[in-house]
């Protein structure tokens, strides 16, 4: 692995916070190294001269895949809630936010 730190400790902590993840010290070091090697690879890619190349917005050679505006089947509520860790009546139940 590179000696250079591509991702700073602050950035790594910020990303972890946005993803709602908590890491031990060892895990954090490990993550920074792995993230760093991904970013390093990106830096390699960025060296390529892309002058005159249209930006890629999607990898599939497809456009305009649509469905008609026709109602179809919905999930029975019991099945929709089957995997909910907590529920109350007909609803999912989640911790309060804010």
């Amino acid at each position: 692995m590179s000696e250079r730190r591509i991702i700073s400790r602050d950035d790594a902590e910020h990303v972890a916070r946005l993803a709602h993840l908590r890491f031990t010290e060892a895990e954090m070091t490990d993550c920074m190294e792995k993230l760093g090697s991904i970013l390093e690879y990106m830096q390699e890619l960025q060296k390529i001269d892309t002058t005159g190349v249209a930006p890629t917005t999607h990898v599939l050679p497809l456009t305009n895949v649509f469905r008609a505006d026709e109602p179809g089947e919905t999930l029975p509520r019991e099945r929709a809630l089957a995997n909910a860790p907590a529920r109350e009546g007909g609803s999912f139940k989640v911790p309060r936010i804010i």
Binding site: E88, S91, K93, V94, P95, R96, I97
Partner: peptide
Amino acid sequence: SHYSLPDY
């Protein structure tokens, strides 16, 4: 409030 009930 202690919890929320999402309706999707």
